[in-house]
C-alpha cells in the first residue's frame, strides 16, 4: 500500500470544493449553518497552509447553477499586492488573504446568484463543474512545477444530493483524476450518501466520510482530511466498506447480476427488449440474430458494391439521426 513516490518534502496542493447550495444549507433540518461550517472550513484551510511553507490552496465554490473560483481569483493575480493594504496585527497575513477571499467570494455568490425555485428542481450544485475546474487548475499547477514536487489532492465538502445529469461529467472527472493519481476526498457533511462521490473516492483511493455529528465538522476535517499524501502512508484513515459496483438496470432500477448491455450506448437492461430505450437503437431479435447475420453476409458477398459505397469514416450523424442510422444498420441485412 505504501506510496513511495511521496516524500516529506512535497509541497501539497489542496483543492477544496465547497458546496454552497443555499437550498440545502438553509434547510430547517440542517444540523449546521453555513456560517458556522465556514468558520470550521477556514480554520482547516489555515491549518493546511500552516503545515508547510510551500503548501498551496485553491478553493472552488459549487453553487446552484454556477461554479467559480473563490481563491485564487483573477483579482489576486492582477491587483495582488496593491489591494490588500488592510492588515490585521493578530492574523498571519497569508491566512487573512485566503479567509477574506473565500468569505467575500461566498458572500458575492449568495447575493448575485439567487437561484429561483425552478432551478432548485433542476438539480443541485455544480459538483462536476467544480471538479473539472479543480482538475484543470491542478493540471496547470503540475505543469508549472515540472519537478514532481507538488502533490495535489481534491477535497469535496458537499451537502447536496447527487444530480443524475452529472453522472457522465463526474465519471469523466473521476477517470482523469485516477489517471493523474489525484485522490478525491469527499466529506458528505450530512444527508444521504452521495453515491457518485463515493465512487469517486473509491476509484481515486481518496477518503469518503459522512461525519456522525456535523456540528463537529472541524474535528473530522482536521483528523481525517488534513494529513498529506506522505503521512497517509502511516495512518489508518477511515476506509469505506466495499463499494458495490454492481449495476442497476435502466428500466426498473433493479440491481442486476447479469444484464443486457446495448452495444451502441452501453445502457443496461434487466431483460431483452427489441429497442434500446436510451438511444432507440433497434436490436435484432435474439433467435433471428444468427439468421440475420448469415443473410447479411450473403448480401454483402453477392453484392459487393453496395457495402463499399458508404465510407466508414463519414460521421453517421448527429444524436438525432443516430437512431435512424442505427435503424438503417439493422434494416440493411433484412432487405
Amino acid at each position: 500500500m505504501k506510496d513511495h513516490s511521496t516524500t516529506e518534502d512535497d509541497s501539497n496542493l489542496l483543492v477544496i470544493v465547497i458546496d454552497t447550495n443555499p437550498f440545502e444549507w438553509e434547510h430547517s433540518s440542517a444540523p449546521i449553518k453555513l456560517n458556522d461550517a465556514l468558520q470550521h472550513i477556514l480554520t482547516f484551510m489555515n491549518a493546511h497552509l500552516a503545515g508547510r511553507h510551500d503548501n498551496k490552496l485553491a478553493v472552488i465554490a459549487s453553487h446552484v447553477g454556477v461554479s467559480q473560483f473563490l481563491y485564487p481569483t483573477l483579482n489576486d493575480h492582477i491587483l495582488g499586492s496593491t489591494q490588500q493594504t488592510e492588515k490585521d496585527a493578530n492574523v498571519y497575513q497569508n491566512f487573512k488573504v485566503v479567509n477574506d477571499a473565500v468569505l467575500s467570494g461566498i458572500r458575492g455568490l449568495l447575493e448575485d446568484h439567487r437561484p429561483t425555485l425552478e432551478e432548485k428542481d433542476l438539480g443541485s450544485s455544480k459538483i462536476a463543474a467544480s471538479l473539472s475546474l479543480g482538475l484543470c487548475y491542478i493540471n496547470q499547477a503540475l505543469k508549472l512545477d515540472g519537478m514532481g514536487h507538488v502533490k495535489p489532492r481534491i477535497l469535496v465538502l458537499t451537502v447536496s444530493p447527487d444530480s443524475s445529469s452529472d453522472y457522465i461529467p463526474i465519471m469523466n472527472c473521476i477517470f482523469s483524476a485516477q489517471k493523474a493519481n489525484i485522490p478525491i476526498d469527499v466529506c458528505k457533511i450530512w444527508g444521504e450518501d452521495a453515491v457518485f462521490l463515493q465512487q469517486a473516492a473509491h476509484i481515486t483511493e481518496g477518503i469518503y466520510m459522512r461525519p456522525s455529528d456535523p456540528a463537529g465538522l472541524l474535528q473530522v476535517l482536521m483528523f481525517s482530511f488534513l494529513p498529506d499524501m506522505f503521512s497517509r502512508n502511516y495512518l489508518y484513515l477511515p476506509g469505506q466498506d466495499q463499494v458495490d459496483f454492481r449495476a442497476a438496470c435502466f428500466c426498473h432500477k433493479k440491481i442486476v447480476d447479469i444484464g443486457y448491455v446495448c452495444s451502441v450506448c452501453l445502457s443496461i437492461f434487466c431483460s431483452f427488449s427489441p429497442v434500446c430505450s436510451t438511444c432507440r437503437t433497434k436490436f435484432a431479435f435474439q433467435p433471428l440474430l444468427s439468421q440475420a447475420r448469415r443473410l447479411g453476409a450473403r448480401t454483402a458477398a453477392s453484392n459487393p458494391g453496395s457495402p463499399k459505397t458508404s465510407t466508414p469514416g463519414t460521421p453517421v450523424g448527429t444524436p438525432t439521426n443516430l437512431t435512424s442510422s442505427a435503424t438503417m444498420a439493422i434494416s440493411t441485412p433484412s432487405q
Binding site: G65, V66, S67, Q68, H113, P115, E118, E119, L122, G123, K126, A128, A129, S130, S132, L133, D162, S164, S165, Y167, I168, P169, V195, F196, Q198, Q199, V243, D244, F245, R246, A247, A248, C249, F250, K253, I255, C265, S267, I268, T278, T318, P319
Partner: peptide, 30 residues
Amino acid sequence: CLSRPRKQGGMTPSLTQAARLPSSKLGKTS
C-alpha cells in the same frame, strides 16, 4: 458548459444526451 445555469442558452448537445440517459440509476448501489 458545466458551470453555467442550465436555463441560459440551453444545454450542450453532450449534456442533452447525458440527461437522456437515466444515469442516476447507472452504477447506483444498494
